[in-house]
Amino acid sequence: MKTLRRKITEDPFLGLLLVAPLLIWVLITLIYPLLYASQLGFYNVRYVGVPARFIGVSNYSRILGDPDFWKACLRSLIWTVCNVAFQVLGSLLVALVLNQQFRGRTIIRNWIILPWVLPTVVLAIMWTWILDPTHGVVNYLLKSGGLVPSPLRFLSSSQWVMPTVIFINVWRWTPYFAIIVLAALQTIPKELMEAALVDGASTLRRFWHITLPTIKPVLSVVTLISFLWSINIFDTIWLLTRGGPLDFTTTLPIYIYKRAFQDFRFSEAAAMSVIMFLFLLGFAVAYLRTLFREGAEG
């Protein structure tokens, strides 16, 4: 039997043959772009087809001296930290609610992810309509409840736009992560909870001493995924606000896009995207290292 298993698993030719299509695809559409963008950063490319001129690190030095770049970074920081915090806490809350025994919970658990299934453009149309200052139902409810004297311009006023777009993105992604957290909650042994209940542990104590330690690894993974996906989000912000009003929602991906496709500064945009990638790679590696170290100790 042992030789048979070896025969199955050790066929390097077949293994490489099967992985080849995706590997080649990834090399062309991810690794080549990464190398090309890194190279592009040292050249001055304004228009496609016009020969590029080598200009050394001056793209990079211009970027680091560009106040708009740093403002975009700051907005990305606010955007990402808020998104991660609310998505992780929100998904934990939603998962705890759906982990209770109630009728129809299998159906609800499967369909709660629906906001994530909606195409981004539908998400944008939906919330632009709901939050519209004149016809929007939210402003109608706020006004008839006497909460605001005049309609709030959620997506077009400088102080409301960022919280609003964050809220919309959190609304969309919370169910997605809640599904994952929910599955983790179900791995908690029933006997453990019952024993704690017999010992008279309060709900809060049970949550703190049993639930949280059990799902902590999953929460860490969710936090990392939420971080990586939030910081890279382009579509949702762009379709809702185009980075406006007055750049108030211009996060780093939006700023890079504008530099490339509105100002036609391809090299600068490429250099910025490489900086962003290196930051994300460093962050992910450092995060996973700490995670594994903690896992090894605990």
């Binding site: 772009p33 990464l34 496609v48 890079i256 990638f277 994300l280």
Partner: peptide, 18 residues
Amino acid sequence: SYIFPKILVLIPLYILFA
């Protein structure tokens, strides 16, 4: 590939496809 910003891939792909 999780980590790649879409925008990083877009610019080189745009030029490559052109």
